[in-house]
Design a binder for these strands. Structure first.
Length: 802
RNA sequence: GCCGGUGUGGUGGAAUGGCAGACGCGCUGGACUCAAAAUCCAGUGUACGCGAGUACGUGUCGGUUCGAGUCCGACCACCGGCACCA
């Protein structure tokens, strides 16, 4: 018999709401558990099956924790600023506020239909002025401490979206949003000094329980490298004893330097224009470089190009060798010092460059064949042609040379990071206004905190200005203001913050969502924080996850937050692919809509299926056909009522079975092995059906295990069993160690390592007993004529060598 | 190039060094039905065999072990991240 999911699901959603089982309590005596999912961007398309996979895991954990006696904070909110909404507003003329509210309403309806046990009394919306007041406040704190600064810089720019992109948003030279190629543009840009926090972000990873691949990606992204800065004197420059500083991780190869390469934008060039004889050629090359976008410029294995600076040369500080100086686009200004000492014998890029320009190649480490290629192995040979370093290993030489350079004041130890500062402004309307005022006399001045929030004014048009400024630049009443310091007429910053701003601290606001005195009450932060378990997508690991860790460390440093690391544990779900095994996308027509699914199958079936479909961390294709297996399973569970007797205990036959199930399901949930937890429950039910009965106590325990996955049906059956207490207020079942094993079991028997049969033995049987059992089996004993050796692993296997 | 990960039936996927393929889908046969759907029962890695069974089988090749999907070494393929990062 099929059960009627529609009425059951509605009924129980109502009961939970009435009983407030989803609401977290401030300062409860119970231990707290803070479970978090990445809050969605409320797009016009509504909820996606990817959301379901991401949310259902922590939903299951949260429901389980409540049964385990925790005061659970499991909140939901909306990351609602952003381009799609603004574009939609532009097309339709609707205000982004209206569009956002509509979308949030749709999302909320869908989320509730799935029975997610979010605490809806703490909903956070990043576009609410009472929320972004605090986003702006954080920006001002960063600004006051010199961690937000404005400078002219070449930035990633998307011509289609007309916005500056952070490096994190333009990976691979492609715009995160629209997929078009990113170009380089010189712009006035607000940066946040995330680089200053590189070391803290690395260190902090030691204190948290993140998936290894999450940690690895962040470590790669930060890209720490230990090296040295070395000064090379310049001959022929405008200033007689000028120096160019290079950064290298291979100071050991210093005797192999045969030329120097500096970035085309290196300030040395303009400072020494007078003395560079081929300035026109240099200018041409610089112009070429500017045209290239960053992706083109940094593409690997591109032909090396460059121009020598005629009239100047550099001097190797250790041997006085005079070397030519080149500009080339393979050296960039934003890493290290924008200048490198070239060692063609032991660096692939320098090697190519030297070959192309016919430059000397001096081998200083033995072991390779530098007539063919650069020798870059640092564990291989020893130093040669290197004076006092000769005969040393690379590691040894590195220490020695670094010490020598430091001692003589020619260089110093230096750590560099690949991670760039965070480009933080967008020329758009639907974002948090950057709370800065420009005064001719006082410069850039923050808006006084008492005047926050700085609210977005209404607009007639969301189009950017002719020269690509934010639409806010058209609103005179917004732009013109008084300097908060001197009172003179001043102008406001018209750029807004990137979408990543609001999401960088939302987990804090959930703890105290209505506070108007602080971003959250410090005592409440102490009680609920940090997040115990955070689940989200791998695509956010080098974006949102790193940004929010940065902000949290900063807020900790200024005393606004009582913990350094925001998330104790971080897991990630795999992608949900289309039925054809490729990424779901509208253009491929393989998108699955939750709305129609829930009508056909119901929330419980879908929740179960999405957790059953495969390994949680791996990508997995959607399969409409497979959903029916979950439906059948739940129908079978529903029909268990007909097999139940009134016995509150466990039957003798099922005691081991149910104890094992409790252990298995509980452990699998904690390990996010939801698919095998469900498989175990299915196997249990199959067993029950083949036995033809289940006691009331067994069914109750089973329903509690099922409840986190399939809460509506579990509640319904619990009620029909005659229990007054709803499952949501019950306790999670416990297993008894003593009852995990049957007294007798089937032991596999191998002969010469090959399986030949099984025998039934007591679980504590000794070798003699097992042997007796094997010999008692005629087909096995026939094979055991000449036993040379016996290997018996109790409870596992016995192997005879004959 | 560097750093991760993965490779198992028709299919999604299970297996602390100990019975490979749990559980689900699909498929085949049967029951119920006038019939179909639903449901229930049985079967379902490959090859050979009427059969009990035998041999082979977790990307490839080798090794360790009484015993390897699992550990080690070499390789192949695919996926993800980083990348002229000095």
């Amino acid at each position: 018999m099929e059960y009627d999911f529609k009425s059951i699901e509605q009924k129980w959603q109502g009961v939970w709401e009435k009983e407030k089982i989803c609401e977290a309590v401030d300062f409860s005596d119970k231990p707290k558990f803070y479970g978090l999912i990445e809050f969605p961007y409320p797009s016009g398309n509504g909820l996606h099956v990817g959301h379901l996979r991401a949310f259902t895991s922590i939903e299951i954990i949260a429901r389980k924790r409540r049964l385990e006696g925790f005061n659970v904070l499991f909140p939901i909110g909306f990351d609602a600023f952003g381009l799609p909404t603004e574009n939609y507003a532009m097309q339709t003329g609707k205000h982004p506020r209206v569009v956002t509210d509509d979308n949030i309403a749709t999302f909320t309806r869908q989320l509730k239909a799935f029975g997610y046990s979010f605490d809806y009394s703490r909903v956070v919306d990043t576009t609410d002025k009472d929320y972004y007041k605090w986003t702006q406040w954080i920006f001002i704190q960063l600004f006051k401490r010199g961690l937000a600064y404005k400078s002219k810089a070449y930035v990633n720019y998307c011509e289609k979206c007309k916005v500056i992109l952070a490096n994190e948003e333009s990976q691979g030279g492609v715009c995160d949003r629209c997929g078009s190629a990113v170009i380089q543009r010189e712009k006035n840009v607000w940066f946040l000094k995330i680089r200053d926090y590189a070391e803290k972000l690395l260190d902090g990873l030691n204190d948290v329980d993140y998936l290894p691949r999450v940690k690895t990606e962040q470590i790669n992204w930060i890209g720490k490298s230990q090296g040295a800065e070395i000064d090379f004197k310049v001959k022929g420059g405008v200033v007689p004893d000028a120096k160019i500083r290079v950064f290298t991780t291979r100071a050991d190869t210093l005797f192999g330097v045969t030329f120097m390469v500096i970035a085309p934008e290196h300030p040395f060039i303009s400072e020494n224009e007078k003395n560079i004889r081929n300035m026109r050629e240099i200018e041409d090359y610089r112009a070429e470089t500017k045209k290239k976008n960053e992706f083109e410029r940094t593409r690997v294995n591109k032909d090396k190009t460059g121009v020598r600076l005629d009239g100047v040369s550099a001097v190797n500080p250790v041997n006085g060798r005079e070397i030519p100086v080149f500009i080339s686009d393979y050296v960039t200004l934003d890493y290290g010092t924008g200048a490198v000492m070239a060692v063609p014998a032991h660096d692939t890029r320098d090697y190519e460059f030297a070959k192309k320009f016919g430059l000397d190649i001096i081998e200083v480490i033995s072991g390779g064949d530098i007539s063919k290629e650069a020798y870059t192995d640092i564990n291989g040979g020893v130093l040669i042609n290197s004076d006092f370093l000769n005969g040393r290993s690379v590691k040894d030489a590195l220490k020695k040379i670094t010490a020598r350079l430091t001692e003589k004041g020619l260089g110093n130890v230096k750590v560099n990071y690949n991670m760039k500062d965070w480009a933080f402004n967008r020329q758009r309307y639907w974002g948090e206004p950057i709370p800065i005022v420009y005064c001719e006399k006082c410069g850039a001045v923050p808006v006084p905190e008492s005047e926050l929030p700085l609210v977005l004014p209404p607009l007639d048009s969301y189009k950017q200005t002719e020269n690509g400024e934010s639409p806010l630049a058209n609103v005179e009443s917004f732009v013109n203001c008084k300097c908060p310091v001197c009172g003179a007429p001043a102008k406001r910053e018209t750029d807004t913050m990137p979408q990543w701003a609001g999401s960088s601290w939302y987990y804090l606001r959930y703890i105290d969502p209505k506070n108007d005195k602080a971003l959250a009450d410090f005592e409440k932060l102490k009680y609920f924080g940090p997040v115990d378990w955070y689940n989200g997508g791998m695509e956010h690991v080098t974006r949102h996850l790193i940004y929010s860790r940065f902000w949290n460390h900063f807020l900790y440093d200024i005393g606004a937050v009582p913990f350094k690391e925001p998330y104790k544990k971080r897991t990630a779900q795999g992608l949900v692919l289309g039925e054809n095994g490729v990424k779901m996308s509208k253009s491929l027509g393989n998108v699955v809509s939750p709305d129609s699914l829930i009508k056909e199958a119901g929330a419980d079936v879908l929740r179960l299926y999405i957790m059953f479909m495969g390994d949680y961390e791996s990508p997995v294709p959607w399969s409409n056909a497979s959903i029916s297996g979950c439906r059948r399973f739940l129908d079978r569970v529903y029909n268990l009522l007909t097999l139940t007797d009134g016995n509150e205990g466990y039957s003798k036959k099922h005691t081991t079975l149910i104890n094992r199930l409790i252990k298995k399901v509980g452990e699998d949930i904690e390990a996010m092995k939801f698919n095998t937890a469900i498989a175990a429950m299915m196997a249990f039910i199959n067993e029950i059906y083949s036995d033809g009965y289940i006691s009331k106590g067994e069914l109750k325990a089973f329903l509690l295990l099922l409840y986190p996955f399939v809460p509506h049906l579990a509640e319904e059956l619990n009620e029909r069993l005659g229990y007054d207490t709803i499952l949501a207020k019950s306790a999670y079942p416990k297993y008894d160690e003593k009852n995990l094993e049957d007294s007798a079991f089937e032991l596999p028997v191998q002969i010469n390592g090959k399986l030949k049969g099984t025998v039934i033995v007591e679980k504590d049987a000794d070798l003699a007993a097992v042997k007796a059992a094997v010999l008692g089996n005629p087909s096995l004993s026939a094979l055991l004529t000449d036993i040379k050796k016996e290997i018996y692993i109790p409870k596992k296997i016995i192997n005879f060598i004959v």
